[in-house]
């Protein structure tokens, strides 16, 4: 089994930022703020956040904010909760939440809660439990969770629980590991994990590990490095992560590295991208890879950042 090519991955992430002329980078243009979160969190986990100019990043982020308080994925695009969470998370990484008008951001998010407790992603009304997680995670980081109806929000998430113990996008939607992370994460942050049937969900989740050691997101699907995050973090939050073979997953993630040019891909020998690089490194952090910072399974930020928010003197 190889080792984590830390230096190569750092170089790769810093280079992605600068490469703007390929077709892929233009197609991804609208979610650059997500990309910033993936790249910067990876750098922090690798202990290399200081290689970027924080002021530059922050000033660009603030240009993505709209009058409504929400953030767009990039300058010129419309605001959406998907990018608002990345803005908040990146500012938390840099310990710069104070540049925000916190009540304004909180007002944008609380305005997206619907009568049934669910959340829309933006003014156009798409409802999804991903948005419930984002709203709850963001408001908790901003210390404004009391601004929404938490009980209703929790009940909506519970109404998306399936008979296999997992969760879907909306009531009746099929269980999916990414969606399970969102719902379990939201329940964790609101102290509501008693709604999760841990043994049933734990069995479903641990059966995501396939022969190669990688994890898939649903039964009978191919493994993918991104599920190292979605499945592992969910298993950790319900204390069932010992039900998978960590050694084999270690190997699978490390096999997905491009050791020459840096970056991690979905499966061995596929093309790398910053999304999978983040999920690979975050997965290794959850597996306690030596030398990596620990990541918090619910807030998806380094543990020291989360502890600073919730346990430090000025809070």
């Amino acid at each position: 089994m190889g080792e984590l090519a830390v230096e190569k991955h750092v170089e790769y992430i810093l280079a992605v930022e600068k490469r703007k002329d390929s077709f892929e980078s233009v197609v991804m243009d609208h979610l650059r703020l997500n990309g910033a979160y993936w790249g910067l969190t990876t750098l922090d986990l690798l202990g290399k956040l200081d290689t970027v100019n924080a002021d530059e990043v922050i000033s660009w982020i603030m240009k993505c904010q709209h009058e409504s308080g929400g953030f767009a994925g990039n300058i010129g695009h419309d605001p959406h909760i998907l990018y608002t969470v990345s803005a908040v998370q990146v500012l938390a990484l840099f310990n710069k939440l104070d540049v925000l008008d916190i009540d304004k951001v909180a007002t944008y998010i609380t305005g997206l809660q619907n009568e049934d407790g669910s959340f829309s992603g933006d003014m156009w009304g798409e409802v999804d439990t991903r948005f419930s997680y984002i709203a709850i995670c963001c408001l908790s980081i901003l210390r404004r969770l009391d601004k929404i109806n938490v009980e209703k929000a929790v009940n909506y998430i519970v109404s998306c629980k399936n008979l296999d113990g997992g969760f879907g996008c909306t009531p009746g939607g099929e269980s999916h590991a990414g969606q399970i992370f969102c719902c379990v994460g939201a329940l964790a942050i609101t102290g509501s994990l008693h709604h999760v049937d841990k043994d049933l969900l734990g069995w479903w989740l641990c059966e995501r590990q396939v022969k190669s050691g990688g994890l898939n997101g649903r039964p009978e699907k191919l493994p993918d490095v991104c599920y190292s995050w979605w499945v592992l973090s969910s298993l950790i939050m319900i204390d069932r992560v010992h039900w998978i073979d960590k050694g084999k997953l270690f190997k699978f993630i490390l096999d997905c590295q491009d050791v020459e040019n840096g970056g991690i891909s979905d499966r061995p020998d596929d093309a790398v991208d910053v999304f999978h690089t983040y999920f690979g490194v975050a997965g290794l952090s959850l597996l306690e890879y030596p030398g990596l910072k620990a990541i918090d399974p619910a807030y998806a930020l380094p543990v020291d950042v989360v502890n600073r928010i919730f346990f430090s003197a000025d809070n």
Partner: peptide
Amino acid sequence: DHSIDTTRYLCSSPLSHSVGSEWNK
């Protein structure tokens, strides 16, 4: 011994906004 705490969210604390986890500095 471990960097990752698998019961971090099964315990009442300010991280999970649990009742009874309030603490007065």
